[in-house]
Simulated assay, not measured.
Amino acid sequence: MDTYWTDRYKNSNTPWDMGSPSPPLTAFLQKLVHKDQEILIPGAGNAYEIEWLHKNGFTNAYVMDISQIPLDNLKSRVPDFPDSHLLFGDFFGLDKKFDLIIEQTFFCALQPNQRKDYVKKMAEIIKPGGKLAGVLFDFALTEQGPPFGGSQEEYEKLFSPYFTIAKMERCYNSIKPRMGSELFFELIKP
């Protein structure tokens, strides 16, 4: 499907991989009450957050990636993770709807010219009253990447036509290499 990302995994060229769930996302996930809500983590890589959700009783958590390798990695770590919740394919072709979508390094991995399409697709697949929440990078947008950066002002402009911005603030609990360069956000679809 996508050789760029598959080649990165084959060559262990995955500097974004923390080897565990992101602290800002774990803090958010720990506050979730409804364990039967439909949750998606797109472009999730090795999906440590979906593993956390699964092990904590969330029964409708899905993960999607354009490379099969990280999905296989998740399945080898969590053999009882449902195969039907491992979505291999292009996010932009997804037609299922979700209550909550978790953003974890997917947005910053897309080419900047895909950002408007990302926002429109999110608005399309999140149920009314549902949320898009997660972490965005807060550093100057560069032409070389991924990851590609951005600013709170840019993100607010991009998301506000489609979502109510409930929260967008600097993460207080980023891992050391990312401290000061991550924004945690929660958006609600009207």
Rank of each mutant, 00 (worst) to 15 (best):
L141S: 03
I69Y: 02
M179A: 11
D99H: 10
W16I: 08
K121G: 08
R115F: 14
A27M: 05
F159N: 11
S22H: 06
N13W: 03
D138P: 00
P177K: 02
G130R: 01
L40Y: 05
L86D: 02
L25Q: 04
D7G: 04
W16D: 12
D83N: 13
T59K: 09
Q144V: 04
N11D: 12
A166T: 13
V33M: 13
L110W: 07
K116E: 15
G134C: 11
L158G: 11
T164F: 05
E169Q: 14
I69S: 10
P190A: 11
I125M: 14
R77I: 10
W16M: 11
I101E: 08
L94M: 09
L187A: 12
L32C: 14
V119F: 06
T3Q: 12
K157R: 02
P146K: 02
L158P: 06
M18H: 03
N60F: 04
S22E: 02
G89F: 00
E169P: 10
E182D: 11
D95Y: 04
S151T: 15
S12D: 15
A140F: 01
I175C: 00
A109K: 12
Q68C: 09
N13E: 15
D99I: 05
F58S: 03
P15Y: 06
M179E: 15
I188P: 00
G180F: 07
K176Q: 07
L110D: 15
E49L: 02
S84D: 10
D83R: 04
Y162N: 10
Y48K: 03
V135A: 14
C108H: 05
L74P: 13
R178L: 14
S151Q: 13
L187N: 08
M168S: 11
R115E: 15
E143A: 08
D7T: 14
Y9N: 13
K97I: 02
G19E: 07
A44G: 15
K167E: 15
L86V: 01
D36Q: 05
S22T: 02
K31T: 06
G57I: 04
E186D: 01
S174T: 02
P128V: 09
G145K: 03
E182C: 08
I101S: 12
P146Q: 03
F91S: 07
Q144R: 05
G43Q: 07
L100T: 03
Q37C: 06
F92A: 07
C108S: 13
E153H: 05
G145Q: 04
